[in-house]
Every structure is written in structure tokens, then in C-alpha cells.
Simulated assay, not measured.
Amino acid sequence: MGLWLWLEYTNYPNIISTMMQLSDSLVKSLSNEALTCLDTLAAFENPPIPKDGEDLDLLDAKIWSNKRPCDDVTEEDKTMFLTFSRGFPVSEEEVRELFITDYGNGSVVEIVMGNYEANNQSMFATMVLNGVALVDEILQGLRLAKLRANGKDIWVRKYDRRN
């Protein structure tokens, strides 16, 4: 909490109220990222903490010691779960086209369509994207987002492995 208060005091007004509007999973991710930053700074004898009026260069290699902020992201972190409406079959090609059109070439790494029902319709799919930031962009701070491909509804959410 001290980090967020310090950020709000220095250069990021309203960061806490902005964070309060985010989903629990995004707040948890921010919290984990804050802990990583603090652990990294704690490893320095003379941490690169800016003085009043100075900016902290988060791209400075000395801060990350050969580790970028997203290096520990797993494939599961970049995976979304998609569901489709019964009676409105959606193909893998339609899903791929939707995301490539909206988010660019290379945005989709892999799509795995779920089991097909008797009417030859898959009711779900998992999709691996090229980064966690894209997952966040698609969900826009929500737990669930509704997209449309060729007039058919596609519901997307962050993938959550269920054992």
C-alpha cells in the first residue's frame, strides 16, 4: 500500500481510485508486480530511487537486471476462454479473423476449439494470445466481455484452469 501512496504522492494522482475500479484479478496482478519491483529495488545497495522532481526510468536495464517486467508470464496467463451460443456455430477461422482484424496480425498464437456436439457445433474454445496486455485490453477491466463475429456472440474471459 505504501508503494501506491508514494506513487500517488509523486507523479500518479488518482492511481488508487483508478485501481479500485479494476477487477480483482487485475489488482492482484498489480500487487504482484509491485512486490516484484520492491524486491528488485531491495537487491540494490544504492537503489535507483528518484529524488523530488526526477523521473524513474522503468526501462533502465539496471533496475531489472536482465529481467523485463513480463518475463515470468506463463502461457496460461495469456490464455482466454471463449464460449459460443447454441444454434450459432462459430468456426476457428471466424474467431481468428475477429481477433486479427481487431488486434492485429500475430495477436493470436493458438486456438483450440472445444468438443463438438451432435449438431457439429463447438460450444467453447481456448485461445492463447501474444501477451497479457492484450488479454487486459480485450477485457477492458471486466471479468467477461462480449464480442461479435459475423453477427454471432462470442463471450470471452480470462482462462482459469479447473482441476
Results as ranks from 00 to 15, higher is better:
Gly2Ser: 13
Trp6His: 06
Trp6Val: 10
Trp6Asp: 14
Leu7Ser: 05
Leu7Ile: 02
Glu8Thr: 14
Glu8Gly: 11
Glu8Cys: 09
Pro13Met: 04
Pro13Glu: 03
Pro13Gly: 08
Asn14His: 10
Asn14Thr: 05
Asn14Phe: 10
Ile15His: 00
Ile16Arg: 06
Met20Val: 11
Gln21Met: 12
Gln21Arg: 09
Leu22Val: 06
Ser23His: 07
Asp24Ser: 15
Asp24Val: 06
Asp24Met: 08
Ser25Gly: 03
Ser25Cys: 08
Leu26Asp: 12
Leu26Asn: 12
Val27Tyr: 04
Val27Gly: 04
Lys28Ala: 11
Lys28Arg: 11
Asn32Val: 14
Glu33Met: 12
Glu33Lys: 09
Leu35Asp: 05
Thr36Lys: 08
Cys37Pro: 02
Cys37Gly: 04
Leu38Phe: 04
Leu38Tyr: 07
Leu38Met: 07
Leu38Pro: 00
Asp39Val: 13
Asp39Asn: 13
Leu41Met: 05
Ala43His: 12
Ala43Asn: 07
Glu45Trp: 10
Glu45Lys: 11
Asn46Trp: 13
Pro47Gln: 00
Pro48Met: 02
Pro48Ile: 00
Pro48Leu: 01
Ile49Thr: 05
Lys51Ile: 06
Asp52Lys: 11
Gly53Thr: 14
Glu54Gly: 01
Asp55Asn: 07
Leu56Phe: 08
Leu56Gly: 02
Asp57Val: 05
Leu58Lys: 00
Trp64Ile: 11
Trp64Asp: 05
Asn66Arg: 05
Lys67Ile: 03
Lys67Gln: 08
Arg68Ala: 13
Arg68Cys: 14
Pro69Val: 01
Cys70Asp: 04
Asp72Asn: 10
Asp72Glu: 10
Val73Cys: 00
Val73Ser: 07
Val73Asn: 02
Thr74Ile: 05
Glu76His: 04
Met80Phe: 01
Phe81Lys: 01
Phe81Gly: 01
Leu82His: 01
Thr83His: 05
Phe84Leu: 11
Ser85Met: 09
Arg86Phe: 15
Arg86Thr: 14
Arg86Gly: 08
Arg86Ala: 14
Phe88Glu: 14
Pro89Lys: 10
Pro89Asp: 08
Ser91Asp: 10
Ser91Cys: 02
Val95His: 01
Arg96Met: 11
Glu97Trp: 07
Leu98Ser: 03
Tyr103Val: 03
Gly106Phe: 03
Ser107Ile: 01
Val108Phe: 00
Val108Gly: 00
Val109Met: 07
Val109Asp: 11
Ile111Val: 12
Ile111Ser: 03
Val112Thr: 09
Met113Val: 12
Gly114Pro: 00
Asn115Arg: 12
Asn115Ala: 15
Glu117Ile: 10
Ala118Tyr: 14
Ala118His: 15
Ala118Glu: 13
Ala118Arg: 13
Asn119Phe: 05
Asn119Met: 08
Asn120Phe: 13
Gln121Trp: 15
Ser122Lys: 04
Met123Gln: 15
Met123Asn: 15
Phe124Ser: 14
Ala125Val: 07
Ala125Met: 09
Ala125Leu: 00
Val128Glu: 10
Leu129Ala: 00
Leu129Thr: 08
Gly131Ser: 15
Leu134Arg: 01
Asp136Val: 09
Glu137Asp: 10
Ile138Ala: 01
Ile138Gln: 00
Leu139Gly: 04
Leu142Glu: 14
Arg143Phe: 06
Ala145Asn: 11
Leu147Asp: 02
Arg148Thr: 15
Arg148Met: 15
Asn150Cys: 07
Asp153Ile: 13
Asp153Trp: 11
Trp155Asn: 09
Val156Ala: 13
Tyr159Ile: 03
Tyr159Thr: 08
Asp160Lys: 15
Arg162Met: 05
Asn163Pro: 14
Asn163Phe: 14
